[in-house]
């Protein structure tokens, strides 16, 4: 439950985290393009060419998704091809490769900073949707326990509010013969 709560906070910060990444790292990687206007869609170059440049820059890894110019995950002039790592751990650590959207030329690629990595790890920890079926089943059982604790706690607390502590004390003293008034 603690893990879900903590990762929930991190996940909720997703938008600011991406925005900070955009403003800092992404801006550094594309410094040469500062001041140029956004590339209009009719001048976008071929995606195949962009993908080929990206693969040449980062050989061997699988691309996970491509961000188009102007969106939250890229600058205004680049395709961003996000590569997964090749071990199960680094699978979630994406490395974006920026390709100029017009010419298909490789600009820069570097791993994302620690706060973005934290965001990428928070997602599976928050939803428990990894690790094979047994883990998902165990996760569901633990969730059920949490719900029972919450439900029974609420029930007890509401009951106590209605009848008060004195009534409970009376019930104990008389050996259970005087039930608390409803």
């Amino acid at each position: 439950m603690t893990v879900v709560g903590a990762t929930g906070v991190i996940n909720a910060l997703a938008t600011p985290i991406i925005q900070v990444w955009q403003m800092s790292e992404l801006a550094e990687m594309t410094r040469a393009y500062d001041g140029k206007g956004a590339v209009p869609p009719d001048r976008y170059g071929s995606i195949d060419k962009a993908m080929a440049s990206a693969r040449a820059a980062i050989p061997g890894n699988n691309p996970q998704f491509i961000a188009f110019p102007g969106g939250a995950f890229s600058s205004k002039h680049h395709y961003a091809v996000f590569f997964q790592g090749d071990t199960p751990l680094t699978e979630r650590m994406l490395v974006p490769a920026l390709i100029d959207a017009e010419t298909g030329v490789f600009t820069d690629a570097r791993p994302m900073p620690w706060y973005a990595q934290a965001l990428l790890f928070s997602q599976p920890l928050h939803f428990g949707d990894y690790g094979g079926l047994p883990l998902k089943i165990l996760w569901a059982v633990l969730t059920l326990f949490t719900m029972i604790v919450l439900g029974s706690g609420l029930y007890l607390w509401l009951g106590k509010r209605r009848s008060g502590t004195d009534a409970l004390v009376r019930e104990v003293e008389t050996g259970g013969t005087l039930a608390p008034a409803e």
Binding site: P88, L125, L135, V141, F145
Partner: peptide
């Protein structure tokens, strides 16, 4: 966390670890 780091035997180890609280 162990289940995040790998597949196969690591998943099995994490199932055992998570079964403990259950």
């Amino acid at each position: 966390i162990v289940a995040l780091t790998g597949d196969g035997v690591r998943d099995a180890a994490s199932w055992i670890a998570l079964a403990i609280p259950v």
